[in-house]
Nucleic acid binder design. Sequence first.
DNA 1: CTATTTTTGTACTCTTTCGCATAAAATAGA
DNA 2: TCTATTTTATGCGAAAGAGTACAAAAATAG
Lengths: 219, 219
Amino acid sequence: MVQKSTSSSSKTASRRRGRPRAFEPETALARAMDVFWKDGFAATSLDDLSAATGLNRPSLYGAFGDKRALYLKAYRRYREHVREAFSPLFAEAAPLRDKLRRILRAALDLYLSGEDGPRGCFSVLSASSDAVSDPEIRKFVGEAIDAADRAFERLFEGARAAGELPADADPRRLALIASAALHTLSVRARARIPRVEIEPIVEGTVEAICGPARRREEG
Amino acid sequence: MVQKSTSSSSKTASRRRGRPRAFEPETALARAMDVFWKDGFAATSLDDLSAATGLNRPSLYGAFGDKRALYLKAYRRYREHVREAFSPLFAEAAPLRDKLRRILRAALDLYLSGEDGPRGCFSVLSASSDAVSDPEIRKFVGEAIDAADRAFERLFEGARAAGELPADADPRRLALIASAALHTLSVRARARIPRVEIEPIVEGTVEAICGPARRREEG
DNA sequence: CTATTTTTGTACTCTTTCGCATAAAATAGA
DNA sequence: TCTATTTTATGCGAAAGAGTACAAAAATAG
């Protein structure tokens, strides 16, 4: 039950004993994530998940556990996906203004993505869901928010050290403003507010943090 | 069915013909709003609503219609409640910095309120809910967000005209930052992040909009 | 070729939920 | 008192949902 594939995970190595799986857990999890991301926890039924993944319910249970466990796994996958997508943007060597703009634009693109309409941010959705009464899910949400706050904080610390921000700038305060931008982008995307009405928030936030267009760079 | 009490609505006037209601629709609606606000649309059952209001289901249907109609009425009531609570704060005669701080503090208090834990902002919740796929609910959400944006925009326009903001300040851009603060306050409150960790966002937003503590008022 | 192991698919149970039918209760008017 | 009208209360019925039992299917080990 809890054995974690004691053998190596290389593709062709020592195949398991019984009937082989007819699906790839990774892609099934990706489909489940899509559904949860779109409809939220309470409004997603196991039949929805079954239809989206192509697995029947017993297979879902066998592979991922019950609905709550699957939600946690889907959420974890979302966070990994986000981390992989945004880490390079934070690590990039570029002026702060450009980096911040690219990060916020990428977030907006992510929040507007979805075959059946914009989905917003999974963490914002989870925070709004009844699932947040679950301590473990709440912990996940808190970690996700904190991770974004810290990533922005480190970004602004570095920028301040590099002279891209005034010496008296407060990286933590600026980080909270950047995270607030993420949250409002998510809310508005989810409300299906047109992209052109949302986009000014990106530039407005960049200006609020980095200062107006090409001024004040040196008092 | 659709007659809207043709007679006057004064308390003692011409009582209706049949058995009188054993409840006050206003308070029942307030209770229903509380439940929807706490659990969201999908996770709230009619039994929950029945228990919270004290009405049995037929009475709920008779008074408010089905679940969706009741949600719309509860949401409408929330917006009226918010408008009544915040209009005086926007209208107040006080320095911009103080007014903005009071508004954001009041919003945080509202989002942290709730007998069973913080509830956040009903509009943010609705945007995250599956109910947003309903065009009418989506329209409500859009209107609520727009109302907040405009209220802040007018506030900053007035402040600029009064010389409390630089002449080149962009009221719309600042308004979007203020609304973003509301959204992040709601998300964090809902995620049960401790109040002391959320409060700095209020002051940080005030500084971002009005400038740092007591400097630069006349650059 | 047989036994063992694991997954798959069907169908089942139990619970919850929504919405409504129906009868009893409470009031106004005749 | 009797009738018309409106609300309340019980509870029905159809549907959906979560989780599981069980047997067939598909692979490996010996």
